[in-house]
Simulated assay, not measured.
Amino acid sequence: MPKRILRGTVVSDKGNKTIVVKVERQFLHPLLKKTIRRSKRYAAHDEQNVHKVGDKVRIIECPPKSKTKTWEVVTSA
Rank of each mutant, 00 (worst) to 15 (best):
M1P: 11
P2D: 09
L6E: 08
R7C: 06
G8P: 02
T9N: 04
V10C: 07
V11F: 01
S12N: 10
K14W: 06
N16R: 13
N16F: 11
T18D: 10
V20C: 06
K22P: 07
V23C: 00
E24Q: 10
R25T: 04
R25E: 00
R25Y: 00
L28N: 00
H29D: 09
P30K: 00
P30M: 01
L32M: 07
K33S: 13
K34V: 08
I36T: 14
R37V: 15
R37D: 05
K40S: 02
R41L: 15
R41Q: 12
R41V: 12
A43V: 07
H45V: 13
H45E: 03
D46Q: 11
Q48A: 02
Q48R: 03
Q48I: 04
Q48M: 07
V50M: 04
V50R: 01
K52C: 03
V53Y: 04
V53F: 01
V57H: 10
R58Q: 08
I59N: 11
I59H: 07
E61C: 07
E61V: 03
C62T: 08
K67I: 12
K67C: 08
T70W: 05
T70E: 09
W71D: 01
V73M: 06
V74E: 13
V74Y: 12
T75W: 04
S76C: 09
S76Q: 11
S76E: 14
